[in-house]
Design a binder for these strands. Structure first.
Lengths: 161, 161
DNA sequence: GTGAATTGTTATATAGCATTACAATCCGCG
DNA sequence: CGCGGATTGTAATGCTATATAACAATTCAC
Protein backbone atom coordinates (compact mmCIF):
# COMPACT_ATOMS: atom_id res chain seq x y z
CA UNK A 1 0.00 0.00 0.00
CA UNK A 2 1.21 3.50 -0.80
CA UNK A 3 1.02 6.24 1.77
CA UNK A 4 0.83 9.55 -0.04
CA UNK A 5 2.71 12.27 1.76
CA UNK A 6 0.99 15.20 3.35
CA UNK A 7 1.27 18.35 1.31
CA UNK A 8 2.58 20.54 4.10
CA UNK A 9 5.97 20.48 5.72
CA UNK A 10 8.96 18.28 5.07
CA UNK A 11 8.54 14.57 5.50
CA UNK A 12 9.48 13.06 8.84
CA UNK A 13 13.18 12.68 9.33
CA UNK A 14 13.99 15.40 6.86
CA UNK A 15 16.65 17.94 7.55
CA UNK A 16 15.17 20.95 5.80
CA UNK A 17 15.03 24.21 7.67
CA UNK A 18 11.62 25.63 8.44
CA UNK A 19 11.45 29.07 6.82
CA UNK A 20 10.80 31.92 9.23
CA UNK A 21 11.85 29.92 12.27
CA UNK A 22 14.73 30.91 14.49
CA UNK A 23 17.19 28.19 15.44
CA UNK A 24 18.64 30.10 18.37
CA UNK A 25 22.18 29.17 19.26
CA UNK A 26 21.98 25.68 17.82
CA UNK A 27 24.22 26.51 14.89
CA UNK A 28 26.91 27.44 17.35
CA UNK A 29 27.22 23.78 18.29
CA UNK A 30 29.47 21.78 16.03
CA UNK A 31 27.51 18.69 17.04
CA UNK A 32 24.32 20.15 15.64
CA UNK A 33 25.91 20.94 12.29
CA UNK A 34 27.36 17.45 12.12
CA UNK A 35 23.99 15.95 12.93
CA UNK A 36 22.31 17.87 10.14
CA UNK A 37 25.00 16.95 7.67
CA UNK A 38 24.78 13.30 8.67
CA UNK A 39 21.01 13.27 8.19
CA UNK A 40 21.49 14.78 4.76
CA UNK A 41 23.91 11.95 4.09
CA UNK A 42 21.28 9.41 5.15
CA UNK A 43 18.82 11.00 2.79
CA UNK A 44 21.33 10.71 -0.02
CA UNK A 45 21.82 7.06 0.86
CA UNK A 46 18.08 6.48 0.83
CA UNK A 47 17.76 8.01 -2.59
CA UNK A 48 20.69 5.94 -3.83
CA UNK A 49 19.03 2.71 -2.67
CA UNK A 50 15.42 3.57 -3.37
CA UNK A 51 14.19 0.15 -4.41
CA UNK A 52 16.81 -1.91 -2.67
CA UNK A 53 16.43 -3.68 0.65
CA UNK A 54 19.40 -2.23 2.53
CA UNK A 55 20.15 0.31 5.23
CA UNK A 56 23.26 2.29 6.12
CA UNK A 57 24.07 -0.01 9.02
CA UNK A 58 23.61 -3.14 6.93
CA UNK A 59 25.63 -1.67 4.12
CA UNK A 60 28.42 -1.02 6.61
CA UNK A 61 28.22 -4.61 7.81
CA UNK A 62 28.31 -5.91 4.27
CA UNK A 63 31.38 -3.83 3.47
CA UNK A 64 33.20 -4.90 6.59
CA UNK A 65 32.51 -8.59 6.08
CA UNK A 66 33.70 -8.21 2.49
CA UNK A 67 36.94 -6.63 3.66
CA UNK A 68 37.48 -9.16 6.45
CA UNK A 69 36.50 -12.65 5.31
CA UNK A 70 35.95 -15.02 8.21
CA UNK A 71 35.13 -12.23 10.63
CA UNK A 72 33.51 -13.36 13.86
CA UNK A 73 30.18 -11.95 14.88
CA UNK A 74 31.66 -10.44 18.01
CA UNK A 75 34.17 -8.50 15.97
CA UNK A 76 31.46 -7.43 13.57
CA UNK A 77 29.54 -6.07 16.53
CA UNK A 78 32.58 -4.17 17.71
CA UNK A 79 33.10 -2.76 14.22
CA UNK A 80 29.50 -1.63 13.99
CA UNK A 81 29.55 -0.25 17.51
CA UNK A 82 26.68 -2.49 18.61
CA UNK A 83 26.26 -5.30 21.09
CA UNK A 84 26.79 -8.90 19.95
CA UNK A 85 23.06 -9.40 19.70
CA UNK A 86 22.83 -6.61 17.16
CA UNK A 87 25.58 -8.16 15.06
CA UNK A 88 23.66 -11.41 15.20
CA UNK A 89 20.60 -9.80 13.70
CA UNK A 90 22.64 -8.34 10.89
CA UNK A 91 24.31 -11.70 10.29
CA UNK A 92 20.89 -13.38 10.21
CA UNK A 93 19.73 -10.82 7.70
CA UNK A 94 22.80 -11.32 5.51
CA UNK A 95 22.36 -15.07 5.61
CA UNK A 96 18.61 -14.99 4.98
CA UNK A 97 19.18 -12.94 1.84
CA UNK A 98 21.90 -15.31 0.67
CA UNK A 99 24.52 -12.59 0.87
CA UNK A 100 26.76 -14.27 3.42
CA UNK A 101 27.38 -17.64 5.02
CA UNK A 102 28.59 -18.79 8.39
CA UNK A 103 31.35 -21.37 8.47
CA UNK A 104 32.86 -23.03 11.50
CA UNK A 105 36.22 -21.65 12.42
CA UNK A 106 39.12 -24.00 12.70
CA UNK A 107 40.58 -24.17 16.15
CA UNK A 108 37.62 -22.48 17.82
CA UNK A 109 34.42 -24.38 18.29
CA UNK A 110 32.57 -21.35 19.57
CA UNK A 111 33.08 -18.81 16.86
CA UNK A 112 31.68 -18.79 13.36
CA UNK A 113 33.33 -16.98 10.50
CA UNK A 114 31.31 -14.79 8.16
CA UNK A 115 31.97 -14.99 4.43
CA UNK A 116 30.25 -13.19 1.59
CA UNK A 117 28.71 -15.38 -1.07
CA UNK A 118 29.15 -14.63 -4.75
CA UNK A 119 25.73 -13.09 -4.64
CA UNK A 120 26.76 -10.94 -1.69
CA UNK A 121 29.82 -9.72 -3.55
CA UNK A 122 27.94 -8.60 -6.62
CA UNK A 123 25.17 -7.12 -4.51
CA UNK A 124 27.76 -5.08 -2.63
CA UNK A 125 29.39 -3.97 -5.86
CA UNK A 126 26.03 -2.80 -7.20
CA UNK A 127 25.06 -0.90 -4.07
CA UNK A 128 28.51 0.60 -3.76
CA UNK A 129 28.29 2.01 -7.24
CA UNK A 130 24.90 3.58 -6.56
CA UNK A 131 25.98 5.04 -3.24
CA UNK A 132 29.14 6.44 -4.79
CA UNK A 133 27.19 8.13 -7.54
CA UNK A 134 24.79 9.68 -5.08
CA UNK A 135 27.65 10.67 -2.84
CA UNK A 136 29.18 12.56 -5.68
CA UNK A 137 25.89 14.30 -6.30
CA UNK A 138 25.46 15.03 -2.61
CA UNK A 139 28.90 16.57 -2.31
CA UNK A 140 28.42 18.59 -5.45
CA UNK A 141 27.78 21.79 -3.58
CA UNK A 142 31.43 21.81 -2.67
CA UNK A 143 34.28 22.23 -5.09
CA UNK A 144 36.71 19.34 -5.45
CA UNK A 145 39.32 20.92 -3.15
CA UNK A 146 36.63 21.73 -0.63
CA UNK A 147 35.47 18.13 -0.65
CA UNK A 148 38.97 16.91 0.00
CA UNK A 149 39.33 19.47 2.76
CA UNK A 150 36.10 18.35 4.38
CA UNK A 151 37.18 14.73 4.31
CA UNK A 152 40.50 15.61 5.87
CA UNK A 153 38.93 17.69 8.60
CA UNK A 154 36.40 15.00 9.46
CA UNK A 155 39.08 12.38 9.52
CA UNK A 156 41.27 14.51 11.72
CA UNK A 157 38.37 15.27 14.04
CA UNK A 158 37.36 11.67 14.62
CA UNK A 159 40.16 9.30 13.81
CA UNK A 160 43.22 11.01 15.14
CA UNK A 161 44.42 9.62 18.47
CA UNK B 1 21.06 -0.07 39.55
CA UNK B 2 24.42 0.33 37.93
CA UNK B 3 25.44 -1.76 34.94
CA UNK B 4 29.21 -2.09 34.90
CA UNK B 5 30.62 -2.17 31.43
CA UNK B 6 32.29 -5.21 29.94
CA UNK B 7 36.02 -5.00 29.92
CA UNK B 8 36.48 -5.86 26.27
CA UNK B 9 35.66 -3.79 23.24
CA UNK B 10 34.22 -0.32 23.01
CA UNK B 11 30.84 0.24 24.59
CA UNK B 12 27.77 -0.07 22.36
CA UNK B 13 27.23 2.94 20.18
CA UNK B 14 30.86 3.92 20.31
CA UNK B 15 32.66 5.10 17.24
CA UNK B 16 36.12 3.77 17.94
CA UNK B 17 37.89 1.86 15.20
CA UNK B 18 38.66 -1.77 15.83
CA UNK B 19 42.43 -2.21 15.52
CA UNK B 20 43.52 -4.67 12.87
CA UNK B 21 40.21 -4.56 11.04
CA UNK B 22 39.87 -3.40 7.46
CA UNK B 23 37.09 -0.96 6.70
CA UNK B 24 37.11 -1.59 2.99
CA UNK B 25 35.87 1.25 0.85
CA UNK B 26 33.70 2.74 3.56
CA UNK B 27 35.98 5.71 4.07
CA UNK B 28 35.46 6.62 0.46
CA UNK B 29 31.86 7.51 1.27
CA UNK B 30 31.38 11.00 2.60
CA UNK B 31 28.22 9.80 4.31
CA UNK B 32 30.20 7.31 6.36
CA UNK B 33 32.66 9.93 7.56
CA UNK B 34 29.81 12.23 8.47
CA UNK B 35 28.11 9.45 10.37
CA UNK B 36 31.20 8.73 12.39
CA UNK B 37 31.76 12.40 13.14
CA UNK B 38 28.15 12.80 14.19
CA UNK B 39 28.36 9.84 16.54
CA UNK B 40 31.47 11.35 18.08
CA UNK B 41 29.42 14.51 18.54
CA UNK B 42 26.71 12.55 20.32
CA UNK B 43 29.31 11.08 22.62
CA UNK B 44 30.58 14.56 23.42
CA UNK B 45 27.01 15.62 24.17
CA UNK B 46 26.53 12.66 26.46
CA UNK B 47 29.64 13.47 28.39
CA UNK B 48 28.56 17.10 28.63
CA UNK B 49 25.21 16.11 30.15
CA UNK B 50 26.30 13.13 32.19
CA UNK B 51 23.98 13.57 35.16
CA UNK B 52 21.29 15.61 33.43
CA UNK B 53 18.02 14.29 32.06
CA UNK B 54 18.25 15.52 28.47
CA UNK B 55 18.95 14.20 25.00
CA UNK B 56 20.16 15.83 21.80
CA UNK B 57 16.65 15.89 20.36
CA UNK B 58 15.16 17.36 23.50
CA UNK B 59 17.91 19.90 23.74
CA UNK B 60 17.13 20.93 20.18
CA UNK B 61 13.46 21.27 21.05
CA UNK B 62 14.27 23.34 24.11
CA UNK B 63 16.48 25.67 22.09
CA UNK B 64 13.91 26.11 19.37
CA UNK B 65 11.07 26.84 21.77
CA UNK B 66 13.32 29.35 23.52
CA UNK B 67 14.06 31.08 20.23
CA UNK B 68 10.43 31.01 19.08
CA UNK B 69 8.09 31.72 21.99
CA UNK B 70 4.53 30.68 21.28
CA UNK B 71 5.58 28.06 18.76
CA UNK B 72 2.87 25.58 17.83
CA UNK B 73 3.50 21.89 18.27
CA UNK B 74 3.10 21.27 14.57
CA UNK B 75 5.84 23.75 13.80
CA UNK B 76 8.01 22.24 16.48
CA UNK B 77 7.57 18.89 14.80
CA UNK B 78 8.56 20.35 11.45
CA UNK B 79 11.62 21.96 13.02
CA UNK B 80 12.68 18.70 14.62
CA UNK B 81 11.95 16.75 11.47
CA UNK B 82 9.49 14.47 13.23
CA UNK B 83 5.78 13.81 12.97
CA UNK B 84 3.35 15.83 15.08
CA UNK B 85 2.99 12.97 17.53
CA UNK B 86 6.71 13.10 18.23
CA UNK B 87 6.57 16.82 18.92
CA UNK B 88 3.72 16.12 21.30
CA UNK B 89 5.81 13.74 23.34
CA UNK B 90 8.61 16.27 23.57
CA UNK B 91 6.12 18.94 24.61
CA UNK B 92 4.71 16.62 27.25
CA UNK B 93 8.20 16.00 28.51
CA UNK B 94 8.98 19.72 28.64
CA UNK B 95 5.76 20.40 30.51
CA UNK B 96 6.15 17.51 32.92
CA UNK B 97 9.57 18.79 33.94
CA UNK B 98 8.22 22.31 34.37
CA UNK B 99 10.42 23.64 31.59
CA UNK B 100 7.65 24.87 29.32
CA UNK B 101 3.96 25.66 29.37
CA UNK B 102 1.20 25.50 26.82
CA UNK B 103 -1.01 28.55 26.43
CA UNK B 104 -4.02 28.92 24.19
CA UNK B 105 -3.31 30.92 21.13
CA UNK B 106 -5.45 33.94 20.41
CA UNK B 107 -7.36 33.66 17.20
CA UNK B 108 -6.90 29.91 16.85
CA UNK B 109 -8.81 27.58 19.10
CA UNK B 110 -6.95 24.54 17.85
CA UNK B 111 -3.33 25.44 18.37
CA UNK B 112 -1.45 25.84 21.62
CA UNK B 113 1.64 28.00 21.94
CA UNK B 114 4.71 26.71 23.72
CA UNK B 115 6.56 29.00 26.11
CA UNK B 116 9.57 28.30 28.26
CA UNK B 117 9.14 28.86 31.97
CA UNK B 118 11.75 30.68 34.02
CA UNK B 119 12.98 27.28 35.08
CA UNK B 120 13.21 26.20 31.45
CA UNK B 121 15.26 29.24 30.59
CA UNK B 122 17.84 28.72 33.29
CA UNK B 123 17.94 25.00 32.60
CA UNK B 124 18.65 25.73 28.95
CA UNK B 125 21.34 28.24 29.88
CA UNK B 126 23.02 25.68 32.10
CA UNK B 127 22.95 22.89 29.55
CA UNK B 128 24.06 25.22 26.78
CA UNK B 129 27.11 26.19 28.76
CA UNK B 130 28.05 22.59 29.39
CA UNK B 131 27.52 21.57 25.79
CA UNK B 132 29.55 24.53 24.56
CA UNK B 133 32.45 23.63 26.81
CA UNK B 134 32.42 20.04 25.64
CA UNK B 135 32.06 21.16 22.07
CA UNK B 136 35.20 23.20 22.41
CA UNK B 137 36.99 20.19 23.84
CA UNK B 138 35.62 17.95 21.11
CA UNK B 139 36.78 20.27 18.37
CA UNK B 140 40.16 20.69 19.97
CA UNK B 141 41.87 18.39 17.53
CA UNK B 142 41.42 21.05 14.92
CA UNK B 143 43.07 24.44 14.95
CA UNK B 144 40.83 27.49 15.21
CA UNK B 145 40.95 28.21 11.47
CA UNK B 146 40.28 24.56 10.73
CA UNK B 147 37.24 24.63 12.98
CA UNK B 148 35.88 27.66 11.19
CA UNK B 149 36.57 25.98 7.89
CA UNK B 150 34.74 22.84 8.94
CA UNK B 151 31.72 24.82 10.05
CA UNK B 152 31.66 26.69 6.77
CA UNK B 153 31.94 23.53 4.71
CA UNK B 154 29.20 21.77 6.65
CA UNK B 155 26.96 24.77 6.36
CA UNK B 156 27.60 25.02 2.67
CA UNK B 157 27.00 21.31 2.20
CA UNK B 158 23.63 21.21 3.94
CA UNK B 159 22.06 24.63 4.09
CA UNK B 160 22.82 26.11 0.73
CA UNK B 161 19.88 25.97 -1.68
C1' DG C 1 -22.43 27.93 4.87
C1' DT C 2 -20.20 23.98 3.62
C1' DG C 3 -16.46 20.97 2.60
C1' DA C 4 -11.51 20.68 2.97
C1' DA C 5 -7.57 21.41 5.74
C1' DT C 6 -5.14 22.03 10.22
C1' DT C 7 -4.23 21.11 15.22
C1' DG C 8 -3.75 18.52 19.12
C1' DT C 9 -4.35 14.17 20.82
C1' DT C 10 -4.49 9.18 21.55
C1' DA C 11 -3.68 4.49 20.34
C1' DT C 12 -1.00 1.25 17.97
C1' DA C 13 2.83 -0.60 15.61
C1' DT C 14 7.59 -1.01 14.35
C1' DA C 15 12.73 -0.88 14.12
C1' DG C 16 16.76 -0.91 16.29
C1' DC C 17 18.92 -1.48 19.87
C1' DA C 18 20.58 -2.99 24.77
C1' DT C 19 20.35 -6.19 28.54
C1' DT C 20 20.25 -10.52 30.51
C1' DA C 21 20.79 -15.28 30.82
C1' DC C 22 22.53 -19.66 29.13
C1' DA C 23 25.18 -23.55 27.05
C1' DA C 24 29.23 -24.68 24.61
C1' DT C 25 33.84 -23.90 24.18
C1' DC C 26 38.41 -22.08 24.91
C1' DC C 27 42.24 -20.43 27.84
C1' DG C 28 45.45 -19.84 31.79
C1' DC C 29 47.51 -21.77 35.53
C1' DG C 30 48.19 -24.64 39.40
C1' DC D 1 45.69 -32.88 33.71
C1' DG D 2 41.65 -30.25 35.85
C1' DC D 3 39.36 -26.36 37.20
C1' DG D 4 37.69 -21.52 37.17
C1' DG D 5 37.14 -17.69 34.41
C1' DA D 6 36.53 -15.65 29.92
C1' DT D 7 34.58 -15.68 25.23
C1' DT D 8 31.15 -16.92 21.60
C1' DG D 9 26.86 -17.47 19.70
C1' DT D 10 22.19 -17.44 20.70
C1' DA D 11 17.45 -16.55 22.45
C1' DA D 12 14.24 -13.97 25.29
C1' DT D 13 12.83 -9.68 26.90
C1' DG D 14 12.30 -4.94 27.11
C1' DC D 15 13.03 -0.04 26.07
C1' DT D 16 13.16 4.15 23.27
C1' DA D 17 12.24 6.76 19.60
C1' DT D 18 9.66 7.11 16.02
C1' DA D 19 5.94 6.57 12.40
C1' DT D 20 1.08 5.69 11.17
C1' DA D 21 -3.66 6.03 11.65
C1' DA D 22 -7.83 7.71 13.46
C1' DC D 23 -10.57 11.20 15.88
C1' DA D 24 -12.86 15.66 17.51
C1' DA D 25 -12.52 20.48 17.52
C1' DT D 26 -11.60 24.25 14.96
C1' DT D 27 -10.37 27.22 11.12
C1' DC D 28 -10.14 28.44 6.30
C1' DA D 29 -11.37 28.98 1.33
C1' DC D 30 -14.72 29.72 -1.71
Amino acid sequence: MRHPRKARGPRPGSIERVPGLSYGDLDAHLGYLLRRAQLAGFEAFERATERIDISPARYTALSIVAANPGLSQSDLGAALGTARSGAMMVADWLEARGLAERHRREGDGRAWGLYLTQRGKSFLADVKRRVRDRDRQFAERLSAPEQAQLRNLLYKLVDRP
